[in-house]
């Protein structure tokens, strides 16, 4: 446990060296909601004809998912920074297992993700009148923590396999484009063509965002959300196992 605490301390120290960065991490989902979501809401209105929900309420889960995705990819990018500083290989000789190394690296960022979600959800309720299901907050925390960790483990595989920063950035751009847009993040899937819907339903971002949507505004079928949650947990475990293996192969 002390090994994980040590890496948590180190990540925290690094983050606190730049308060601007910290502020951005905490408030950018809210900013996205206030700029993009409010714009869409006014211009296009609600995506739902029958439900009493506006786009702000619908998109809240989307920005939380996007924030998880962003924190995870930034944390994975940290491997490049550590490699450039040479500290990466030294850390592999510190008294901690490869699994502890990965878990510790994401731990501080999970706290950040929870704080970020708390700010975004509270201010969405206060400023945009989003009808939050406060009774489901533990489910929301599970979605934020599990989602951020799962995406970090997934991106860590690429950060550890790819040696060039620019190649990693390109791969991340492709993931951003494909995973975020081919999902339920920005729009409901029901009106979409079958091929698109099928692609979106097999996308882990959809699984996470559906979970977050259910836990923020109670929208969605509970059985489907539970199944998607299980699928995301499996995806995270597989990603974790493979990322540990990649870390063991670092030479």
């Amino acid at each position: 446990m002390s090994a994980i605490a040590a890496i948590f301390y180190r990540e925290g120290k690094l983050r606190f060296t730049n308060l601007g960065w910290m502020f951005w991490d905490l408030f950018y989902p809210l900013g996205y909601l206030l700029v993009f979501s409010v714009g869409i809401n006014y211009a296009l209105g609600s995506p739902f004809q029958t439900l009493d929900l506006d786009y702000n309420a619908f998109f809240l889960a989307g920005v939380l998912g996007m924030a998880s995705f962003g924190i995870a990819s930034n944390t994975a990018w940290g491997f490049f920074f550590d490699r450039d500083n040479g500290i990466f290989y030294e850390m592999l000789i510190y008294p901690l297992s490869r699994a502890q190394f990965l878990a510790g690296k994401v731990l501080f960022n999970l706290l950040l993700a929870v704080a970020q979600a708390a700010i975004a959800v509270s201010l969405a309720a206060a400023l945009l009148r989003v009808p939050i299901r406060w009774d489901l907050w533990p489910v929301l925390v599970v979605g934020v923590v599990g989602g951020t960790a799962g995406w970090f483990f997934f991106f860590a595989i690429f950060a550890l396999k790819i040696r060039r920063n620019d190649v990693f950035n390109t791969v991340m751009s492709v993931f951003y484009f494909l995973l975020l847009f081919a999902s339920s993040m920005f729009y409901p899937l029901e009106p979409l063509p079958v091929w698109f819907r099928t692609a979106a339903l097999s996308n882990p971002i959809t699984w996470q965002v559906d979970w977050l949507r259910f836990s923020t505004i109670g929208l969605g079928d509970m059985t489907q959300v539970m199944l998607e949650g299980l699928a995301f947990a499996l995806f995270s475990l597989l990603a974790f196992a493979y990322a540990v293996r990649c870390l063991q192969q670092q030479e």
Partner: peptide, 17 residues
């Protein structure tokens, strides 16, 4: 790893700390 400490050939420091 609990019993060793290492100075690697390459520079290995926390630049931001």
């Amino acid at each position: 790893r609990r019993r060793v400490s290492v100075v690697l050939q390459e520079s290995a420091v926390e630049m931001f700390l």
